[in-house]
């Protein structure tokens, strides 16, 4: 709904602006060009997405999620001291985090929602932890950004994966700042 209003407003703005910048003709052709360009773009990254989905499937089948889970639980107990006491919430949190790390969005969301529902049911004591869960899920924890690598490869990058260290570092900074902000706001919020 909100997105629809935003799109409409941006179209209007462009139509009003184009004659002023002397680019009415270019703007007139742009929409058709854009629609046409969307198809080859998706085709150009589809191959990469398929290949890396296969690698993720391999990791899933050899139990990478379970192996990660064991290592993640001590961390989760510290992050969510109240909720982690409930066995069901802890397992949902673990599934959510390991799926996020592996980049399995389709598995991360249902598990995260289960954890969020469990926390909401705990009421007052867990409401800060529920906010933390939201903050962690709105930051990216993905270790292998396959979609971005596919886009770079399709655009002719010399080495599609050479941005990996930068992505990891930036994700780490983002998550740390999110948790820091969470720790700060939790104390200030009334």
């Amino acid at each position: 709904m909100l997105l629809g209003i935003l799109i409409t407003a941006l179209y209007l703005l462009c139509i009003l602006l184009a004659p002023l910048t002397g680019s009415a003709e270019a703007a007139g052709n742009a929409v058709m060009e854009g629609a046409q360009a969307a198809i080859p773009f998706v085709l150009s990254i589809a191959g990469g997405i398929c290949l890396w989905s296969g690698v993720l499937e391999l990791l899933e089948r050899c139990g990478a999620s379970a192996a990660l889970a064991g290592r993640l639980q001590p961390l989760l107990r510290r992050l969510y001291p109240r909720s982690a006491r409930e066995e069901e919430i802890l397992s949902a949190l673990t599934e959510n985090l390991s799926a996020n790390l592996l980049g399995l969005g389709n598995a991360a969301t249902p598990a995260g929602i289960r954890a969020a529902k469990g926390m909401a049911a705990l009421g007052e004591p867990a409401r800060d932890e529920l906010c933390t869960l939201v903050v962690l899920n709105t930051a990216s924890l993905q270790l292998l950004p396959a979609m971005i690598a596919s886009i770079r490869a399709a655009a002719g990058a010399a080495s599609a994966f050479d941005i990996l260290p930068a992505v990891w570092l930036s994700s780490a900074v983002s998550v740390s700042c999110g948790l820091l902000a969470a720790a700060l706001f939790r104390r200030l919020w009334r």
């Binding site: 799109i7 929409v31 629609a35």
Partner: peptide, 14 residues
């Protein structure tokens, strides 16, 4: 849906 908008945003100078 979004590609035409992005192209329009660029072409119009916005």
């Amino acid at each position: 849906v979004l590609y035409p908008l992005i192209y329009l945003l660029r072409a119009s100078g916005l």
